[in-house]
Structures are given as C-alpha cells and as structure tokens.
Amino acid sequence: MRLSLKSLRSWEGLLLVILIAVVALNIALSPVYLGVGNFINLFQLSIEKIIVALIMAFVIINGEIDLSVASVMGFAACVVAVVHENNALPFAAAVALALVVGALAGLVQGYFVAHMGLPSLAVTLAGLIGFRGMARMLVEDRSIGDFPEWFNALGQKPLLGPIPLALLIFVGMAVIAVIVLQSAAFGRYVTVIGNNADVARYSGIDVKRVKLSLFVLSGLVAALAGVLLAARLGAVRASTGEGFELDIITMVLLGGVSIFGGSGSLVGVGLSILIILNMRNGLGLANVEANTQTGIIGALLILSVLVPNLVNGLRRARVGRAGHT
C-alpha cells in the first residue's frame, strides 16, 4: 500500500505504469501492434504535434502559454504553398521564408507578452485567430498541392533506415531540450521565471529576453512543424493544423508540467506523448473512431490532475483520522 502511494506521488512513476498498461493492452489486443512499421506510423501520424509539444513544455514551465502554435503551423504551411504556387522563389527559399515568418509571429507575440507585460493567454488567443486569418487571406478556400517530388518524399518516405526526417528532427530536438532544461543556464532561468518572475528580475536575470526568445522559438518550431505537415500531407488548405493546440497542450499538461509554471520535467512530457500516441494507435487498431479518441484524450487530461488530487485528499483524511484515535 505504502509503495503504491509513493509511486503515485511521483508523477513520472504513474505515467510509466499507465504506459506499460496501454502497451500491454495493445499487444494483447492487436497482432499488428508489435511491428516496426506500426511504430513508425504511430509517431508519424502526430509527429508535428509532438515536435511543438517540446517547445510548448518550455513555454508553460516559463509560466506562459502559446495558444497560437497551430495557427502559426497553418500560416507557415500556407506561406510555402503560396510562394510555390506563384513560383516567386526557389522552393527551399520558400521553406526558409516560412520559418522566418513563424519566428516573426513569435517575436510579435513575445514582444507584447515580455515587453508590454500583457497576459499570454489573451495575446496568443489573438494570435490563434489572427494567424489563422492570415492563412485564410493567403490561400482563401483553395487547396494547394503539387509540391516538388523531393519535398513530398521528405515528408512521406523514410530517410534513415525506416525512419523519416520528421522523426529524426523530433529525436534530435528532444535530446537538446532535455539537456537545455536540465543543465543549461537558459533552462534554469526558464524555471526560475516560471516560479516567480520578480525573483528572477531581482537576481539580475534578463526576464524579458528569456521570454521573448521562448516565444520566437515557439513560433519558429511551430513553423517548422507546419512545413513538415505540408510535406507529409502533400497539400495545404487554410485550415491545415486547425485545433492542434489542444492536443499539444494536453501532451504537456498530462506530462505533469504545472499550468502555473515553474515545474515540470521533459521525461514526464515524453511519457505522456508515448501514452497518447500508443493509446490513439491502439484505439485506431481497435477501430475506434478518431472522434472518440479525442474524447478519451480529453478525459485523460482531466483525470491526470483529478486522480492525484483525490488520492492526496483521501490520504490526508486517513492521516487525520488516525491522529484522532
């Protein structure tokens, strides 16, 4: 009993238990689950979201939120598509332009948050609506495809052994993210600011610069994810990536990152990503509709905070009663 309570108290422990249960269930229920192809596929279907989840973890640990990521993804994808459609630039330059546009989108929002002190919830809500609007201005109600062969291949075909480019990018970024958060000065500053920005300021940390760079990075990474999404889908619409922000934020919060900032680990986020992907995969193999999967993820998000709260409450009540007798 004591053991289980203790492991419950460690969030990563609980996530690990859930992950093992999900994987075990998948193995038991589906014969095709254990295959390299299925594993790659499992990542590939949500690869853009999990790339953005990495930077989102930093933003939330910093005590802010970026609701605009999915819109920036769509906007960047549309930039690539429209530049390509008009043959204005070589395709690689179009991709570079999209990345710059994403970084700029982050810069603008970051300026309002870091330098003017506006709440990021409001600023990035405006960004969510506004950047999607800009995507709509560019592409209107068309669907633009017909990208160069090499671009589509990068998005759809394996690059290294069975592994596609996007997955390589994710793994590389994940390693960098873990190192930065745990042992770079920047990571420590992000955490301290998330705990208490005033303490950071009074310690001589340039709070504005840290926040601004986070938002620029968030925009840049979202744009990269948008370009990868365009490559994978092979065609872009104004609504590309719409609603992704919910999944991304769910991955981060389920991973134990506090919505109030200041605490969270990337190990937790990694586990939560694996849980969500495996669960979706398993449900998909079991022919559960995508819609129902979304509902289940929503429930998981709530339960991820509710269950530990209830367990703690019960434990406290039991200790209280024990004290009385």
Binding site: I179, S183, A184, A185, R188, Y189, T191, V192, N195, N196, V199, A200, S203, G204, I205, G262, S263
Partner: peptide, 26 residues
C-alpha cells in the same frame, strides 16, 4: 528566493554564468 527550488540553485542564481562549462552547461 525561488521557493520551490533547491538551496544550491538559489545560492548560484545571480552568478550562474560562473558555473558554466565550455559547452555552456552548468
């Protein structure tokens, strides 16, 4: 003070740059 963080992290908070290796890691 950054209350949830360790004594060590708080003591070096204002001088963290001194504790970085050549790769920029603490």
């Amino acid at each position: 003070l950054s209350l949830p963080q360790s004594i060590t992290a708080n003591v070096t908070l204002a001088t963290l740059k001194r504790y970085l290796s050549r790769l920029g890691l603490i």
